[in-house]
Write a protein that binds this DNA or RNA. Structure first.
Length: 741
DNA sequence: ATTAGGCGATTTTTT
DNA sequence: ATCGCCTAAT
């Protein structure tokens, strides 16, 4: 859609124009996939500004920061630089911004920390340990997700406790209560609090609410189908005075019920605003007739939906191709060879291709095949930069610096680098801190008073506390990036990693350097910004936000991450019962419908060509499993589909057109797309790329090495490899990402 | 009392 | 690959 002109309203169809021009009063836009929803939103905002609405009176809530950034760019092209003053971003990031200003009214300090799921889980585990609740019996992760669920429905701990029926819920209720006080004590909020606390703020302080109601006279919400009840309540409150609320969404693309998204939000909109104008966008500009028809055949199996009649004037296009493969490796290899083929046929570069899957675990096999063939790719999500351990360690230091009360972050780094502070010493510290009612860092500063600590532990604690005090004092004098560099230098993380001297530690060191540059860059680009600003920004980055789509690379992503995106050619892999739809026990109708919507989202990402693939044998949870075809494959009429039985071919390479095996002169001679034929698994001698003792492999970090021994098989296959550079390593083949030479 | 190193379990989707 | 948990070494 980016290619379309954006300059004039006359390029919009009548429905879109209506959605743009109806600026007064409540509006709900039901926008089918590819119906130009983003264009409508950008034009609507530009239109508001053109008729004299100041940018800071417009609140535009998007699903990702990336979407907000792109939209801002497009609005800038329409109306100029004043677009920069729009309040546009995710619920989480805009409300975090609002809380920075207002949080003291609800008992937080402005420098509050934002805890991600990992931080929350650490806190929950700590609480459970202190309360002697066995983690084997009560899974901390399950408890965390229950607590999050409760918060998404804005149930307070006492309310949740009242509703608890079984022992698990009773335990959860108790932990939930302690969790909330723990967060507050540490001046920290989790993701859910970023929504919930503003709601409490508005409900408890009508003057504050009134201020923001007057401020945000025009409210727009994108991806409305995936908002939860708290978000719904926030929009309702903020919009109550002027009622200029415009929500845009598609019930058929609601895929976050597991996270609290509530379809009632769409239905209740009509109830809350009986005079709401409902506008349907049903013309699709994205996909071929074939793809759109298939999508419609899929979604009409859902009973729970608002029917839409989507149509397109695009060409009929190619049939949808279903690939039936022997196993997951063959599936991956087939996809790779088809990418090669299609990119030549359609004359598009690798950025036009996406491979989608239901679970992150599926990416590994696909990555292997891509890497073997020298096809460059990016993964959206997975282990991203800001999730890496060394990055989180450095950020934890910065978070304590910004917010001394942040105990979770302090505990993360209290003994990294090793300072001789183990469990026993930390227990004493925690005890002291709760006795005195002061935070952990202040307790550390007074470690001398703590009975039962060794002299060396006392010294370590006070030195650590002094370190934070010193840099806190410096923060007024030097720039953020100087401050951070000096502190990390003194802490000695870089030296520690250097001394370790392994290739992994060198890579980690690189990452830390990269983080330091990122901070400098941020400080340069945002003059007057503080450490808190930077930390807030990185805490709220989503997977898609971190996706750099400027390179010619194949994109790998989950179906969830694919929302809002489009690609000329889409592969959806793993169309198997249990995987897509995903289930481990018999699936209920509600869950099945959500799985179907997820599938629908994937199908409707495709512009020109859609491939659906499945494998008969898949390695899952360390076992070989026999997979049957997904019921979703049967939901598309046979007339729209051609089925290729890759597995059944005696010589798969014969029919599946192959690029030359030698990587000589294709048109784009500098990119080596392909080096191996699709793997035929099952027999012993057809695996030239199999690991064998005495063979050579290459590891991303360790470099080249020789295989000394192999043991186990399948998921548990282990290899002993001698690397001249890095020494002898015991590797789990499944994770080591070895390239066979 | 702390730490390093080995072993087993673990994977639905995520702001 | 990473985490928690265990044991042996310091």
């Amino acid at each position: 859609m980016r290619t379309m002109q954006e300059s004039s309203l006359s390029d919009l169809n009548p429905r879109q124009q209506e959605a743009v021009k109806t600026v007064e009063g409540p509006v709900m836009v039901l926008a089918g996939p590819g119906s130009g929803k983003t264009r409508v939103l950008t034009h609507r905002i530009a239109h508001l500004m053109r008729i004299g609405v100041p940018p800071y009176s417009i609140l535009a809530l998007t699903f990702t920061n990336k979407a907000a950034g792109e939209m801002k760019e497009r609005i800038t092209r329409l109306v100029g630089d004043q677009a920069a003053r729009l309040w546009m971003g995710t619920f989480h990031s805009l409300l975090a911004r609002l809380l920075r200003v207002e949080c003291e009214k609800i008992g937080f300090q402005k420098n509050f920390s934002i805890y991600d799921a990992q931080d929350s889980l650490a806190l929950i585990k700590r609480i459970m340990k202190a309360a002697n609740i066995p983690a084997q019996q009560f899974n901390p992760a399950a408890i965390r997700s229950r607590i999050s669920g409760a918060k998404n429905q804005s149930l307070s701990p006492p309310e949740y406790a009242r509703l608890a029926t079984d022992p698990f819920e009773e335990k959860t209720a108790r932990i939930y209560a302690e969790y909330q006080t723990g967060l507050k004590r540490q001046n920290a909020m989790d993701f859910d609090d970023l929504l919930l606390l503003p709601l409490e703020l508005f409900e408890g302080h009508r003057a504050v609410l009134s201020k923001y109601q007057d401020r945000f006279r025009f409210i727009l919400v994108d991806e409305y189908q995936d908002t939860n009840r708290v978000q719904y309540a926030l929009v309702k409150l903020l919009g109550a005075k002027y009622r200029n609320v415009c929500v845009v969404g598609d019930d058929a693309q609601s895929i976050y019920a597991f996270r609290g998204a509530d379809i009632r939000n769409i239905l209740d909109f009509e109830r809350d605003y009986p005079d709401a104008k409902i506008i349907r966008l049903e013309q699709n500009y994205r996909s071929t007739k074939t793809i759109l028809a298939a999508a419609d055949q899929v979604i009409k199996n859902n009973i729970d939906q608002m029917r839409k009649d989507l149509w397109t004037s695009n060409a009929a296009g190619d049939l949808i191709t279903v690939l039936e493969c022997e196993d997951d490796r063959q599936e991956a290899a087939t996809i790779v060879s088809l990418i090669y083929e299609e990119s030549r046929k359609l004359k598009i570069d690798l950025s036009g291709f996406a491979i989608m899957y239901r679970t992150n675990a599926q990416s590994r096999t696909l990555e292997d095949a891509l890497r073997r063939s020298g096809v460059s790719y990016v993964i959206v999500g997975g282990i991203e930069f800001y999730q890496r351990k060394e990055i989180k360690d450095v950020l934890a230091y910065l978070r304590v610096l910004a917010n001394n009360a942040d105990g979770e972050s302090l505990l993360r780094v209290v003994n990294y680098p090793p300072r001789g502070l183990g469990e026993a010493a930390l227990n004493r510290l925690a005890e002291f801190s709760s006795d005195k009612g002061i935070n952990l860092l202040d307790s550390a500063a007074r470690a001398g008073e703590i009975a039962g600590l060794s002299a060396s532990a006392k010294r370590s604690f006070t030195e650590l506390a002094a370190l934070f005090k010193k840099y806190r004092g410096l923060s007024a004098e030097v720039s953020v990036s100087e401050l951070v560099r000096a502190m990390i230098d003194e802490v000695g993380i870089l030296t520690l990693l250097k001394e370790e001297g392994t290739p992994e530690s060198m890579a980690r060191r690189e990452n830390v350097h990269e983080l330091l540059s990122a901070i400098s860059e941020y400080a340069d680009q945002h003059s007057g910004s503080t450490l808190e600003d930077f930390l807030q920004e990185v805490s709220l980055l989503s997977d898609v936000d971190q996706w750099d789509d400027t390179h010619a690379e194949v994109t790998l992503l989950t179906l969830h991450a694919a929302k809002g995106l489009e690609f000329p050619v889409v592969f959806i892999s793993g169309l198997e019962e249990g995987l897509l739809p995903f289930y481990t026990s018999p699936i209920g109708p509600k869950d099945l419908e959500e799985e179907r919507r997820l599938y629908y989202v994937g199908v409707t990402r495709a512009m020109r060509k859609l491939y659906l693939s499945r494998a008969r044998i898949r390695y899952r949870f360390g076992d070989v499993t026999f997979q049957s075809a997904s019921r979703f494959l049967d939901e598309i009429e046979p007339s729209l589909v051609e089925t290729v039985n890759v597995a059944g071919r005696s010589r798969p390479q014969r029919r599946m057109p192959q690029p030359a095996r030698s990587q000589v002169g294709t048109a784009d001679s500098d990119s080596r797309y392909f080096s191996d034929p699709p793997a035929e698994t099952g027999s012993d001698f057809d695996q030239p790329q199999a690991l064998r003792i005495g063979g050579f492999v290459e590891h991303e970090i360790f470099g080249r090495g020789k295989i000394l021994d192999l043991s186990g098989n399948g998921e548990t296959l282990k290899a002993v490899v001698d690397f001249p550079e890095a020494g002898r390593k015991n590797l789990l083949v499944r994770y080591a990402r070895l390239k066979i030479l």
